[in-house]
């Protein structure tokens, strides 16, 4: 495979181009996805390449956007429905969790819903309480849904392709602060299946399970800690539903310590579930309680000073790791 550097958003965009070229049943709808290419350039060039039948601007109507996707998916198409900001899932939530997620089960298995929902989550841009959230735990709690959170350019392409090819309703949460981040991306079309964690970095003293952009912060923390003689292994679950518990548990059995990092608020976050899974599967291997680094239990604040205090970063992760390995 030929590989070159692409930005996170360009990699996502290339994946969408390629999967749409390969499968005429894939179409894209959402607010300003066609003429404008999406507010984050996620959909640049798609209208030009695939035309107005397959790339459509919608009214501002999130319930109808997702509901249309559910109905079209139940008829065998592969809709990609964009919700722009992750905070907007609340507007469409009935269609996501009562309809898309449950249709197969409550109708006795007779219908599949190969729907992909794209959206952008995460903070760090002074976008305040309604444009900064990380709501993955909310979605991962619903049987029937899958939730992907790419943390690299490579994964942004592979996970959007994997989501579209998956026969279940899947939400792909792009991270707003990573859009311009570059990484190696193969030119060819490839898919990352749901439920396969990525061992981002190998280490022996502690396992950091990092979600979305926190992989970047954890990687910075790991470099600092390495200089201090602490060897960090980083696991990126890539999808929080399904969760690749095996890879996480295998790592913790090796390192005997775990720190979980996410942007979402700590209480009831996906870190609580991961912590519980670790303790159920590897309690006897643990040399310290499983720790979490996450946002405090408040809405996301606007002020850069407040938001910096709100969001986990490399320094806070490193401090927690030092405490967990007994060097705090």
């Amino acid at each position: 495979m030929t590989t070159r550097e692409l930005t996170y958003v360009k990699a996502f965009n290339e994946g969408l181009h390629q999967v749409m070229a390969a499968d005429p049943d894939v179409f894209l709808i959402g607010e300003d996805v066609a003429g404008y290419g999406g507010v984050f350039h996620m959909f640049d060039g798609l209208l030009t390449e695939f035309g107005p039948k397959r790339v459509k601007d919608t009214p501002i109507a999130e319930q109808a956007i997702i509901g249309l996707g559910v109905g079209a998916a139940a008829r065998g198409l592969r809709p990609v429905c964009d919700l722009m900001f992750m905070d907007f899932v609340g507007v469409a939530m009935d269609q996501i969790f009562n309809q898309a997620a449950k249709m197969k089960y409550m109708f006795g298995g007779g219908v599949s819903v190969p729907l992909t929902i794209t959206t952008a989550g995460g903070g760090g841009m002074s976008a305040a309480a309604q444009h900064s959230q990380s709501l993955e735990a909310w979605l991962a709690h619903i049987p029937g849904l899958k939730v992907a959170m790419p943390a690299s350019a490579y994964d942004a392409k592979g996970l959007i392709v994997g989501a579209i090819r998956d026969d279940n309703p899947t939400i792909v949460v792009m991270n707003k602060k990573m859009l311009g981040m570059k990484g190696p991306v193969p030119e060819e079309l490839y898919a990352i299946p749901m439920g396969q964690a990525n061992v981002v970095r190998e280490g022996s003293d502690v396992t950091i399970v990092a979600i979305a952009r926190m992989v970047v912060e954890a990687t910075k923390a790991a470099a600092t800690l390495e200089a201090e003689g602490i060897s960090v292994e980083i696991i990126d679950p890539r999808t929080v539903q399904p969760l690749d518990t095996d890879t996480i548990v295998t790592s913790v059995k090796k390192t005997n310590r775990a720190v979980i990092v996410h942007e979402a608020v700590e209480f009831g976050g996906i870190g609580a579930e991961i912590s519980s899974q670790i303790q159920e599967a590897a309690f006897d291997y643990l040399d310290a309680p499983v720790a979490r680094v996450a946002a405090p239990f408040s809405p996301s604040p606007y002020s850069p000073i407040l938001e910096n205090a709100y969001m986990p970063d490399a320094a806070r992760i490193a401090a927690r790791v030092r405490a967990v390995v007994g060097r705090g």
Binding site: A64, G67, A72, G76, Q95
Partner: peptide, 29 residues
């Protein structure tokens, strides 16, 4: 019966309406 063109009965009032629009979109597509 999903084999007879039923996208199900729906216990959320109004929940089926956008789904039917999706089915109609598939017809047009």
């Amino acid at each position: 019966d999903t084999n007879k063109g039923m996208l199900g009965a729906n216990a959320i009032v109004g929940g089926g309406i956008p789904i039917a629009v999706g089915a109609a979109f598939a017809s047009q597509y």
